[in-house]
Design a protein around this nucleic acid. Structure first.
Lengths: 208, 208
DNA sequence: AGTTGTGAAACGTTTCACAGCT
DNA sequence: AGCTGTGAAACGTTTCACAACT
């Protein structure tokens, strides 16, 4: 397959989100123009994004909402459910562990780990474990495919290396550090400080 | 000023993060190559990013760490502190409100609002307020420059319109919805579902 | 008539490569 | 000798515009 741009995949995810809403509202077809408005893009962009994966519409008519949802779910790899572990049960880790949206979108939190498993209390009972040597065994047993890192910056690279060594190939990083991973491991970093600084820059340089 | 790419601003923020660490380790000069490694990019990219704003290095030598930190802080608009309000005190909103990293990086949480101010309890006491008609008055009085939306998707556009009408020009959105804002208002959306779906795509299409 | 799918053009970003300083 | 700063080249992404189809 030809290489697909990150920006394309991000938009496909947004289209899917909007289509699900659109279907709930009882619509059964949608045009690239309507879909574009939802994602803050253009109709040509929508058609181009989809064209990388095939031909899903009917000329003169648009796209069948239910079919397009199914196609996008298949393209994004959401036909199966994805088991996820969360490393770090501080405020962010604990908030994510309890976030119901995970499950709705096809991701199952199968484990939460913290160096101090007492820290969060009974709400994570049954799922919060000691972050120690047992992690490797748990990964082998539960086969999580994605690890979410919610630990301090200085611990992040170490835990990333560790889960990669155990076979995990996708990491979502909330630590405020750029991480390096071997070829074939997907890492996405969500960095609060950077997001705020981009906004500070925009406020400081309104014309840029 | 020439338009600056979003990707450039993001990298500047990462460079700053790394430089602060590098300074703490006692180094006083750094080359574009060393800085590049930290941000997962190339030395030419680092030099190009900086060149949009001026000339900060010494040929043959590199960059003076402390000076470059000061320059980046000025470029990003971090010389003053930025007052921030958080709309929504659910799990994510409450976690952010208590996140110390905000303050460290020059952002002050001056208000947290929720439709039900009883929900979080005493830890946000003195800062958590009812999300009601008083918001407009608070914005006029406290002059926050950035609003962080931590509310359900269906409420997000409404609260965005509201804070924009009160004069806020920068919004960080954690609701899983694409938002529209008038020209001149910077909006950044952090969407958990999309981040996970990009990882699911990467796992499903290892070659793409 | 209306909308898709898609090559080609336009645009933007990154990489190259080297002149110019220190 | 070493490293920056930067035009120019290469590359990637978005937009255009229109033929193809319903």
């Amino acid at each position: 397959m030809k290489h697909i741009a990150d920006s394309t995949v991000r938009r496909l995810s947004l289209y899917l989100r909007f289509l699900e809403e659109f279907e709930r509202q009882g619509h059964d077809t949608i045009s690239s123009g309507e879909l574009a408005r939802s994602g803050g893009t253009t109709s040509a962009q929508v058609r181009k994004d989809l064209s990388f994966f095939g031909s899903f519409g009917k000329r003169g008519l648009g796209y069948a909402v239910t079919d397009l949802i199914a196609s996008l779910r298949r393209i994004l790899g959401l036909e199966a459910r994805w088991p996820v572990i969360i490393i770090g049960a501080g405020k962010i880790g604990a908030a994510l562990a309890q976030y119901r949206g995970f499950g709705v979108h096809g991701f199952d939190v199968v484990g939460v780990y913290d160096a101090d498993p007492a820290r969060v209390g009974e709400r994570l009972a049954g799922i919060l474990d000691q972050l120690d040597a047992a992690l490797e065994g748990d990964i082998a047993r539960l086969q999580p495919r994605i690890a979410v890192l919610c630990i301090p910056g200085e611990a992040a690279q170490g835990q990333l290396d560790r889960v990669v060594k155990s076979g995990i190939r996708a990491v979502l990083n909330f630590a405020p550090t750029a991480l390096t991973a071997p070829e074939g491991v997907a890492v996405r970093t969500v960095n609060m400080a950077t997001e705020l600084e981009v906004l500070a820059f925009a406020l400081t340089n309104p014309e840029a």
